[in-house]
C-alpha cells in the first residue's frame, strides 16, 4: 500500500521515456521530458511522507502529531523551479526552430548530422 506512490512515479518516468523514444514532434518530446520530471518530483516528495503526518511548519503543527520530512519537500520545490526553467528554454528553442523551418517533425529537421 505504501509503495503506490513509488509505482506511480516510476510509471510516469516510463511514460516519459516512451514518449522520448517513440515521438517525433518536438513539443511532444518536451512533454515527455516534463512527464519524467513530474515522476521524479513525485518520487522525491513521497520519500518524505509519514503516515498521518502534517505539513512541516513548526509553529502550526498540533503537538504530538508527526510531521512529514521537510528536506524532500525543499528538494522537490527546487527541482520544480529548475524543471520550469528547462522546459521554458526548450519551448523557446522549439518556437525558434519552427520559425526557421515551418515544421516540428524531428525527422525533417536534420540539418545537423554525422
Amino acid at each position: 500500500m505504501g509503495n503506490f506512490a513509488f509505482l506511480a512515479a516510476m510509471l510516469l518516468v516510463g511514460i516519459g521515456l516512451w514518449a522520448l523514444v517513440s515521438r517525433r514532434n518536438l513539443i511532444k518530446l518536451a512533454i515527455g521530458l516534463s512527464i519524467i520530471q513530474s515522476g521524479v518530483n513525485l518520487f522525491l516528495v513521497s520519500l518524505g511522507y509519514v503516515r498521518g503526518g502534517v505539513a512541516p511548519i513548526y509553529t502550526y503543527a498540533p503537538p504530538g502529531v508527526p510531521m512529514v520530512l521537510p528536506t524532500p519537500q525543499a528538494l522537490t520545490l527546487t527541482a520544480i523551479v529548475i524543471g520550469l526553467a528547462t522546459t521554458a528554454l526548450m519551448l523557446a528553442f522549439i518556437v525558434v526552430i519552427y520559425r526557421h523551418r515551418g515544421t516540428l517533425d524531428a525527422g525533417k529537421i536534420r540539418e545537423l548530422k554525422g
Binding site: 527541482a79 526548450m90 528553442f93 545537423l112
Partner: peptide, 23 residues
C-alpha cells in the same frame, strides 16, 4: 537553435537521472 534543443533534451534527461539517483 537546433543544436541547442538537441543538447538541452539530452542534458535534461541526464540531469533527471542524476536527480532520481540522489532521491
Amino acid at each position: 537553435p537546433e543544436a541547442a534543443f538537441k543538447t538541452m533534451a539530452l542534458y535534461t534527461l541526464g540531469g533527471l537521472l542524476v536527480l532520481l539517483a540522489v532521491g
